[in-house]
Amino acid sequence: MKNLLSFLTLILLTFVPAHPQIDVSYSKPEELEVKILEKLFQDILGKERVRVFVIGDKKEHYRRGIEDYSDNLHLVTNCGGADIVLLAGQISSIPEDCLKKPLFSTRRENISKFRGCLGAFYWKKGRPNIVLIKERLEERGIKMPKEYRRYIESEGRATELRRGFRI
């Protein structure tokens, strides 16, 4: 008992921190979600201001988010005027003129469904993930900054993962 107490006291003493500073700021997940999309689109397209066309069954959620939290993403009402198309949630078909544009999805499944989909920002196993497809970026001559290295996968691996048999 005595030993235990002295052990706990020892721990208590070692807990005194060197820099007692704390940045008390509380970010909203909805805001961060848009910030991530904003950064991704800016880095994919290499430009500051990006025009986005949103389609899919979750489009309302993402449109609202972009309107509320992003200064650099601008919503457009058709593919013609868009720099990138965001496939938000489930989607069965895409208007013909959108297929020429870079696509980006919030579901991993859309990567194998749409050839023009460069990547996805999606949830899996309770964690947010980003994946970018190497070949598809190269096709469009996109070179991503180094910080994205860990998120870039080759096309073969991405479809293998989708089937879930990679052991």
Partner: peptide, 8 residues
């Protein structure tokens, strides 16, 4: 991006 993702 990694930091943003973690924060998110």
């Amino acid at each position: 991006i990694t930091e943003l993702l973690k924060e998110y």
